[in-house]
Design a binder for these strands. Structure first.
Lengths: 123, 123
DNA sequence: GATGCAGGTTCCCAATGGATACCAGGAGAT
DNA sequence: ATCTCCTGGTATCCATTGGGAACCTGCATC
C-alpha cells in the first residue's frame, strides 16, 4: 500500500470507510456505545424508529470493521452485549464532534432552508 | 426551541442534519470546497465516479442548507461557481477530521475485516 | 451543419431501506 | 398443559433511493 490514500478515488479504501461513517445508524450507535456497553434491545429502544433489521445489519458491519465487539452470554433469555473496541473509541470521539456541530448549528440550517424555500438566494 | 436537541429522536431536526452529513457525496464536496471555490464540472472531474445527477442533487441540498453558495456568471458557456459559506466552513473542518481518521486507521479496519471474514472473533 | 463544451434534467433499472411476520427456547402466569 | 412474553435475531415483501445513460439549451468553432 504505497499509494497515498485518496477518498476522491472510488477504488481507495478510505472511500469505503467514509461510506461506513456515512451510515446514519452507525453514527448513532457509536455515540451511544461511547457512553456505555449496551444490549441489542437496549440499543433498539434508545434509537427511535430503527428497525431490528437495520440494527442487526449495522451492528454486524461495525463488528466486521473492528469498531465494536459482540459478546453473547448464555443467560436466559440470551444476553448479547455490544461495546466499543479501542479502535471504535477513537472514531466515536470524532463522530461526537459531528453531533455537536449539528446541535449547535441546527438553527442556522433551518433558517437557511426557510429562506431557500421562499425563493431567496443564499447570503 | 426549548426542547433539547436529541438525535436519537426521529423527529429532532439534528437527526436530519446527521442524515445530511451521512451523505457520502456531501462529505467529499465539502472537503473539496474547503480548499477552493470550484465549478460544476471541476467538481465532477475531481470526485471519481460521481454522476452528474447526484452532483447536481447534492449541490442543491447543500445550498438549501446554507452550507454552500452558488454563483452563476453569464459567460459563454455559462460558468457556475460553488463555494463554502461561513456556516459550511465550520462544518467542513469537522468533516475533515473524519477523513483524517479514515486515512489514519484504514489499515486497522482492513485487518479487522480480514480477521472477521476468516471467522475469527474480534479481539 | 456537425461538433464541442458548460451545466444541468429526465428516464429507467438495480440496489437499498424499512415494515411486518416469523423463529427458537425458556420463564412465568393461568 | 398451554398461553404469553422475553430475548436476539432472520426472511420476506414493497417503497424509496441511487446510479447510468441519454437528452437538452445556448453559444462558438471547424
Amino acid at each position: 500500500m504505497l499509494q497515498r490514500p485518496d477518498p476522491f478515488n472510488a477504488q481507495c479504501p478510505t472511500r469505503r470507510v467514509l461510506d461506513r461513517i456515512g451510515d446514519k445508524w452507525a453514527v448513532l450507535i457509536l455515540i451511544l456505545l461511547e457512553r456505555e456497553t449496551l444490549r441489542f434491545n437496549e440499543l433498539r429502544r434508545r434509537i427511535d424508529s430503527i428497525s431490528q433489521k437495520m440494527l442487526s445489519q449495522t451492528l454486524k458491519s461495525l463488528e466486521r470493521d473492528g469498531l465494536i465487539s459482540r459478546r453473547a452470554f448464555a443467560t436466559v433469555p440470551v444476553t448479547v452485549e455490544y461495546a466499543l473496541t479501542p479502535l471504535g473509541r477513537t472514531l466515536a470521539s470524532t463522530v461526537q464532534a459531528l453531533t455537536q456541530w449539528a446541535e449547535a448549528h441546527i438553527g442556522e440550517v433551518e433558517e437557511a432552508q426557510r429562506r431557500y424555500d421562499r425563493g431567496e438566494v443564499a447570503a
